[in-house]
Design a protein around this nucleic acid. Structure first.
Lengths: 140, 140
DNA sequence: CCGTAGGGTTAGGGTTAC
DNA sequence: TGTAACCCTAACCCTACG
């Protein structure tokens, strides 16, 4: 009764992004089930989260340029809700700490690798990508 | 890895249906083990067969839309060797070619973009994004 | 351990409302 | 017209059970 389209509030978007950082992309139900994020997303379904994330990605990545900036924005993202305890296994990374531009970018890339489907086969794949990234750091 | 969702090709569906006629519904492992059908279903597990059959059934008897069309399809069902649709989008990217650091990073970024959404429109999308990345070099 | 059944979840194309 | 929000459903995952 409040209109057919329920526009996302900044608070909801913040919760979603924080959830993605904690659980990774594609873990919509997990994010929703975590009261830390689900509280602010009571009115949303897992599919809603997926759709919203797609819209966000389209808005950031789809637009011309500022691609890397967008990546960094998501990786960094201190929208207000800080400290997200990574629910994912074995990452002692100190996210949000960037000593310089290159590590900044590196972190952005690797963090995205982590966000990308932290599943079975993908893990191996991403680890291997990470290793490929290392030399890159030196180059920079 | 290819896309996350490996769409069933007409050839595979044909093999599955033929297998069901030969072994019956629920004999997924048996169908797979029979080279007569399993050959075309190398990329599929018994669970995949089960799921696909469920989808076919749903599409045939459950869907609002193409219900009638599907019924007609089953009635006719001339499973002969029809046209074969290319199984994968087949990207002609020249991966592994890095001229310099920035293009390396660029490739890394675009590569996970492909992992994220390695589908139809996305291919074009990514190519175009690659081009868009160029200006970012300066930023870097 | 292996296979199947069935409920649940996600990914992506498509559609609608603004 | 462009796009954020929403729908549809094939493909895939998880778990109980025999």
């Amino acid at each position: 009764m409040g209109g057919r389209k329920q526009m996302w509030t900044p608070k909801e978007v913040t919760a979603l992004r924080a959830g993605v950082r904690a659980y990774g992309i594609g873990k919509w139900r997990g994010i929703l089930s975590d009261s830390k994020f689900g509280r602010a997303l009571k009115a949303r379904s897992n599919v809603d989260l997926k759709d919203k994330w797609r819209n966000i990605s389209a808005a950031t990545f789809g637009s011309r340029k500022k691609k890397v900036l967008a990546i960094v924005a998501v990786a960094n993202d201190n929208d207000g809700e800080q400290e997200i305890v990574p629910a994912s296994p074995a990452n002692g990374d100190n996210e949000g700490l960037f000593a310089s531009v290159d590590t900044f970018i590196l972190e952005a890339i690797t963090s995205w690798n982590k966000l990308l489907r932290p599943n079975k086969k993908s893990i191996l794949h991403h680890v291997e990508e990470k290793n490929n990234m290392q030399p890159d750091k030196k180059w920079l």
